[in-house]
Design a protein around this nucleic acid. Structure first.
Lengths: 342, 342
DNA sequence: GCACTCGACTAGCGCGCTCTAGTCTCGAAC
DNA sequence: GTTCGAGACTAGAGCGCGCTAGTCGAGTGC
């Protein structure tokens, strides 16, 4: 038997249910349900009476029961990595967008102790109707497999997954802008610190080579292994500092990586942008934080979030629609970390 | 009627239930339940058969139904602000700890469009058994009110809430260490940029005054209004730069604020730590990122997370236990942003 | 041979809600 | 006066599980 005075929720009182509200308001449970779902069929006076009773009792509809009974959860599951500032920007933009169309948002983070599969599993078992994956590292095959089991929209996933919706920035155009910007400033020795196996890295790597080629610098193209972390940026910078001659510019895999480069060069006594120019990627809000504000490729978090939510809901309403890709144009934001080479 | 070929989950097939698994394995539903809850009562061979059938069908227990039936959710609801790196550290530490004791974690973020009440509401309606609030800004009264309705543990909440568990760092000791460190280095003009109305700010402010007093510098104590953001740090630095004479050291409200100070001073041509020393607070992972690594007061995210989870679960098991406060000792981490004044 | 135990398994209720298929009232139309 | 319809409301099934109270059969002990 359940001890009503010592329940797991620790409040010492049973959580009020619809039945309690119905009794208090002198109506049936069904009517309370109607009122709480804002459906027609209840008189105005009764409606008020129900709401007052609910308020008095501290009634709150039970999401679990609601999901069970309605076969709908109206919930979007968002997978994120808590430490990526750009993803934080995305999450902040997803909330209002989901709310606008009447969906709830459930967050599930990846962490060192918690891989993507686990994070996704949690969302699915909570009956999320659609998943939004922020920068998933999973390979195309895994994404497609997941896309077969659930309705998945990704932001910046690998391009070759075909069973999920994907919102991404035109990496080629973005990288191209960055390279053009540097070349126009007079740079010739432009190194790219890549994002390792993170999604989009391969594309950006290829785009970098192509852009260098286009400006007749194909032979000078050089890629250093990296990742989307400050540490990767630092390590790359240290490697460069060890060499006889520095390049005049570095194109980083993302803003965090760029920040790492910035820091390491500063420590190494190399002035940015006087001695070396640095370009980031994302325009997450960290790009303003460095002593030298980052020149970076802006990905519009708000737009991306809006598209992702829209795609997810579209497919919820029409599951037959084939997965789409939305490609947004990035924009170079020129700040203080780039200048003509000396 | 529900159209089985076009369900909201878009997978085109009804999600398999326990009944399906039971039928496929040739056992009763109850037995499947036993197997999935890892309870004794099922033979090894049958257990395997059930698991295989479940795997084949792609069965996944339904969290909603499970919660409904068991009156337990075994879920901890965590409220966070997605842009605070220190909170990201906390979240990463909470996951493994919760998992260790068999609890799930649900995240709910605050954002400009989503205040704390909303974030908490979402967690409660999802039947979280206990809430863990990271750096709540709510006032003591609101926290206590919430503490009456649910089982709440906070990390770094205002000190005067009495109906919730609270894990915090001994601000007085931390600030004291920072001030002592600076005074020992020879500083006299030490300014504090505070955290405005964020939790803990009042305490740190008072602690700063007290620490300055203790070192005979009470009259030189000076507090500048701030917040837990880079922008607040920048603004404070600009104010200082406008004045005739700079202080020799600044104690920031947290690391992000310190980073803002760092950046503004760098832009203003003031060398850190040569011309001015800066001390942060938190030792979130951003503190390593500045060109000059931050001297900061370390709050041990992992320890704090462990205590928070422990407190929550303790009270779930014994709801009668009165709310506790756990105060951890902070530790000064001396890095590159402090030095003797010139 | 019988009572008893113990492990393996099952029947069926109920969690808090949604939703379909009603009932009941009341006023308007004929 | 009767019929009809619309609005207000209700009864009750069922969502996918957990859990209690069983049944059943194979030992075990005497």
């Amino acid at each position: 038997m359940i001890d009503e005075t010592a329940r797991p929720d620790g409040t010492g009182a049973r959580r009020p249910t619809m039945t309690d509200v119905a009794r208090a308001a002198g109506v049936s449970r069904a009517l309370v349900s109607l009122v709480f779902r804002n459906k027609p069929g209840a008189g105005e006076e009764t409606r008020q009476r129900v709401l007052q009773a609910a308020d008095r009792l501290g009634y709150r509809p039970d999401t679990a029961a609601r999901m069970l009974a309605s076969h709908r959860s109206r919930t979007l599951g968002v997978m994120l990595t808590v430490h990526q500032p750009f993803q934080a920007d995305l999450v902040e933009a997803i909330y209002p967008e989901a709310e606008r169309i009447g969906y709830e948002v459930l967050l599930s983070a990846t962490a060192p102790s918690r891989d993507e599969a686990k994070a996704v599993e949690a969302l699915l078992s909570h009956r999320c109707e659609a998943l939004v994956l922020l920068g998933p590292r999973a390979e195309a095959g895994q994404l497609d497999e997941l896309g077969g089991r659930a309705l998945v929209t990704a932001i910046n996933a690998r391009e070759d997954a075909t069973r999920i919706d994907n919102v991404r920035t035109a990496d080629e155009a973005g990288v191209r802008q960055a390279v053009d910007h540097l070349v126009d400033l007079g740079h010739r020795e432009i190194v790219h610190v890549d994002g390792g196996d993170e999604p989009g890295s391969a594309e950006r790597r290829a785009a970098y080579r192509k852009a260098m080629d286009a400006r007749g610098l194909g032979e000078r193209a050089r890629v250093l292994p990296g990742a989307h972390t400050e540490r990767a940026g630092q390590d790359a910078a240290l490697r460069l500092l060890d060499e006889a001659e520095l390049p005049t510019a570095v194109l980083a895999s993302n803003d965090r990586c760029a920040l790492g480069l910035l820091r390491a060069f500063a420590l190494g006594g190399v002035d940015v942008p006087e001695e070396i120019s640095i370009v980031g990627y994302d325009d997450s809000h960290v790009s303003h934080l460095a002593p030298v504000a980052l020149t970076t490729i802006r990905q519009d978090a708000e737009q991306m979030a809006k598209h992702a939510v829209r795609l997810a809901v579209e497919r919820l309403e029409d599951p037959a629609r084939t997965p789409q890709e939305v490609v947004l144009d990035p924009k170079l934001v020129s700040r203080g970390s780039t200048a003509p080479p000396r």
